[in-house]
Lab assay of single mutants.
Amino acid sequence: MTYKLILNGKTLKGETTTEAVDAATAEKVFKQYANDNGVDGEWTYDDATKAFTVTE
């Protein structure tokens, strides 16, 4: 299944996707991606759209 990450960081904005077996796996991938790019903020998840959002 495809999951999307929407980044609303102070220095990094954009979107990326990942293929994962479930939302928990996608969340781990996205949190590592955000951490690697220096984005740390409030996380939300919308199951209807399979989209995670992180806002700094």
Rank of each mutant, 00 (worst) to 15 (best):
A23Y: 13
K31A: 05
E56Q: 10
M1S: 13
T25W: 07
F52P: 00
K10M: 13
K13H: 10
L5S: 01
V29N: 05
D22W: 03
D47A: 14
N35H: 15
K13G: 05
N37C: 14
E42I: 14
V39C: 04
N8W: 12
M1E: 12
L12H: 11
A24Y: 10
T18S: 05
E27P: 00
Q32A: 12
M1K: 12
K13T: 10
E42G: 05
K28Q: 11
L7V: 12
F30I: 00
A23L: 10
T55V: 08
D46L: 04
L12W: 14
T11P: 04
G38N: 10
V21P: 15
G41S: 01
A48P: 06
F30V: 01
E27S: 06
G41C: 03
T18G: 03
G9T: 15
T53W: 06
N8I: 14
A20M: 03
G38M: 06
E19S: 11
T25E: 13
Y3M: 02
E56D: 09
K50M: 11
N35R: 15
E15N: 06
Y3S: 02
L12N: 07
N35C: 13
G38Q: 07
Y45W: 04
D40K: 14
L5K: 01
A48S: 12
A51T: 15
N37T: 06
T55M: 07
T25Q: 12
K4Q: 05
V29M: 09
L12F: 15
G41M: 03
N35P: 01
A23V: 12
K50A: 05
Q32F: 05
T11D: 10
F52T: 00
T11A: 09
T18I: 15
A34K: 01
G14V: 14
A26V: 02
T2V: 13
T2L: 13
G38L: 06
Y45R: 01
T44E: 10
T11S: 12
T17G: 04
D22R: 03
Y33H: 04
E42L: 13
G41D: 01
T18V: 14
A48H: 10
L12T: 09
A51K: 09
E27Y: 15
T11G: 08
K31D: 01
T53E: 04
V21F: 12
T44M: 09
F52K: 00
A20V: 04
E19N: 13
K28F: 09
V21D: 10
Q32M: 09
L5V: 03
M1Q: 14
G9A: 08
T17P: 02
K50W: 05
E27N: 05
K50Y: 09
L7Q: 02
E56N: 05
N8F: 11
G14C: 15
N35I: 15
K10N: 11
T11F: 14
L12C: 14
A26C: 01
E15K: 06
G14K: 12
L5Q: 01
Y33Q: 03
K31N: 04
T55H: 07
F30T: 00
Q32P: 02
N37R: 15
G9K: 04
I6C: 06
A23E: 07
E15R: 06
T25F: 07
F30N: 00
E15H: 09
L12R: 08
T49S: 11
V29K: 08
L5Y: 02
F52G: 00
K4R: 12
T16E: 06
E15Y: 13
A24E: 11
A24T: 09
A23Q: 11
N37M: 15
N35V: 14
M1H: 14
A24R: 10
E19V: 15
T25R: 06
D22P: 01
T2P: 05
E19F: 15
A20F: 04
T55C: 06
V21Q: 12
K10F: 13
T16Y: 15
T17Y: 15
E56W: 13
E27W: 15
F30M: 02
K31P: 00
K13W: 10
Q32Y: 05
N37W: 14
T25S: 12
V21C: 11
A26F: 01
T16N: 05
D46P: 00
Y45M: 02
K28Y: 09
T16Q: 09
F52M: 01
A51M: 13
K31S: 04
K13N: 08
K4C: 06
E42Q: 11
N8T: 08
D40E: 13
M1I: 14
K31Y: 05
A48Y: 11
N37E: 06
T17K: 07
K28A: 12
L12P: 04
W43F: 04
L5H: 01
A51C: 15
G9S: 09
Y33I: 07
D22Q: 03
D36H: 07
K10P: 11
A20K: 03
A24S: 09
D40N: 13
T11V: 11
A34H: 01
F30Y: 01
E19T: 14
E19I: 15
D47E: 14
L5D: 02
D22I: 03
K4A: 05
K13C: 13
N8G: 04
A20S: 06
A51S: 15
W43P: 00
D46S: 05
F52W: 10
G38D: 07
T55W: 09
T53I: 07
V39F: 12
A24C: 12
T2N: 06
V39S: 03
W43K: 00
K50Q: 10
Q32V: 08
I6V: 08
D36T: 08
G9V: 10
A51W: 06
T53M: 09
L7F: 11
E15S: 11
D36M: 12
V29F: 15
E19C: 14
K50R: 14
I6H: 06
T53N: 04
D47N: 09
T2E: 08
T18W: 08
E15L: 11
V21H: 12
T53A: 05
W43L: 03
D22A: 04
D40S: 13
D36G: 05
Y33P: 00
N37V: 15
Q32C: 07
T17E: 09
D36P: 02
D46A: 04
Y45L: 02
T55I: 09
